[in-house]
Design a protein around this nucleic acid. Structure first.
Lengths: 284, 284
DNA sequence: TCTATCTATCGAAATTTTCGATAGTGGTCA
DNA sequence: TGACCACTATCGAAAATTTCGATAGATAGA
């Protein structure tokens, strides 16, 4: 797959014509035709509907359009960034799902600021797949996450187990499948197990991927949703939230993920702080 | 640029050797050598340091590594999704930076659930670049964001102007440059203007990209940071936060971004709700 | 100094891409 | 209905690129 196939595709999509695309790209119409045919062979589907009036995108073509843009963009970005690759990175980037930022991780960040004021820190809340991706590509130095797919070249270290419980702010007991249930995206493991436990809720009416926002939303709207026990415990104690009887619980181990090849002087103080802070969450 | 150059690069990076990569890829060592040389010609820099013991990534090579992964992944994803392009999408994905989820947008989501219970909604809080990217690749249907780079094929519609103000929870007035200041990532425009206004704070000790978490963090830790006035107004009224004298304010227009080619029956009710809800934020 | 092991280069062969010419298709108009 | 027009598809040839096998070059270790 050559990027030029994507560029040719995009030009035909833009002009609506093989001939016009050929003019813009300084190649012949038969070259455009051959390239689009080659692309269609690779994808296994036609991307244009040809006619006397030119070429229109098929459904597959419309689907491919964004990928073609992405391919061109990734390659352009690669060329740019490689040319700037001598720049030095002097900060540490830490990431975790929004849930895990409650408590220990944020406290550790605070302590790090105090103890090592010359190291800049950037903190990111994102979903697990994004975190894994950024670890792989090197834009994240350390992550805390639920059971990760082990990124190549990284150590995965168990910290504690996180329990997800169903809670509701409604005054009457909610029924599963009713519109007061909100699915919150706690990661792919949760999504899978949740789908297995509640097959009828595979497609809830509302799903949220909003960091810490969901708790406020659930509290304000008499909804029910799954949350980590660690987070909702104070609200349960105060009666703001209730646990419905006989709801499934999900338990997921939480891990630290960091590079095998690392500057131990920089990493070890952080890792040690996190191990200590998370000690309190150890169960049984 | 052929994806096979990226694949070859990744295999050499993984094995540390042209010969081993050749074996794994079922090509000859000279083909590997030629491909890597071709890649280096395109990038304008060497990506491997060759030696008798094999090949190690250069700084440019390390930089290129994530792009190579991205290229391979985008192409794989393209092939998969094109093959599923007949599937019907029956939900709407909405995205905004965490800040903008406060208020109107979340209320609109609630109303939508009530008015159109058969349409599934997924809501995502993410930074602007991610939102733009997802609009382009079609995994987001509608976004609310500060001044976006106009994604191709999308309409950008102005809603209201958002004012960012510096607030502090500290009892004594904070000094810029001191360790009680936290930089919160409100997007690239804010980053740029903030850097221009406070050049000495280009690299703050702590920067957060944590959705709505930062307000709680600032309140709990006697820190200062920029927030939208809309969000902090209640805290200012209650005295929980103060506005330091003579701090810069930043004002950014907020826009809706949605596809030009769209099912208006599906979109227009949502757009109208949002226009009404945001009417209250109109300034002057 | 010799050997081993790796990458780089060479020339030839194989494969792919591009071109110009022309076939094929289908819509429009008299 | 036939001619004309405008577009894409295909063909065969030429050009360009890629791959291979052989071997040169570089370097570390014994």
């Amino acid at each position: 797959m050559d990027i030029n196939l994507a560029r040719t595709f995009l030009m035909v999509a833009e002009t609506g014509s093989f001939i016009d695309a050929a003019h813009r790209l300084n190649i012949t119409q038969s070259t455009v035709s051959a390239r689009i045919k080659g692309l269609e062979d690779l994808l296994g589907r036609p991307v244009f509907e040809r006619s006397k009036s030119g070429a229109d995108l098929t459904a597959a073509g419309e689907q491919f359009h964004k990928h073609a843009l992405a391919l061109v963009r990734v390659w352009q970005r690669a060329q740019l960034e490689v040319s700037l690759s001598d720049q030095h990175r002097d900060h540490i980037a830490v990431g975790a799902p929004a849930t895990l930022w409650h408590g220990a991780l944020l406290k550790t960040i605070s302590k790090l600021r105090t103890d090592t004021p010359d190291i800049a820190i950037s903190a990111t809340a994102a979903v697990q797949d994004v975190l894994t991706q950024r670890l792989i590509e090197g834009t994240l130095d350390l992550a805390m996450m639920y059971r990760p797919i082990q990124p190549p070249g990284h150590t995965v270290e168990h910290l504690f187990d996180e329990e997800f419980v169903l809670v509701t702010s409604a005054r009457t007991a909610p029924k599963k499948g009713s519109s007061d249930y909100v699915f919150i995206n706690w990661g792919s493991d949760f999504q899978r197990d949740h789908a297995a436990a509640y097959p009828e809720l595979i497609k809830p009416g509302l799903s949220l991927d909003l960091g810490s926002m969901p708790l406020e939303y659930v509290l304000a709207n008499e909804l029910s949703a799954y949350f980590p026990m660690r987070v909702v415990k104070p609200y349960l104690s105060r009666g703001r939230l209730k646990q419905p009887k006989r709801a499934r619980r999900f338990v997921y181990p939480v891990y630290l993920v960091y590079p095998e090849a690392r500057d131990e002087d920089a990493y070890d103080p952080i890792l040690d702080m996190l191990r200590r802070e998370c000690g309190r969450y150890a169960t049984d």
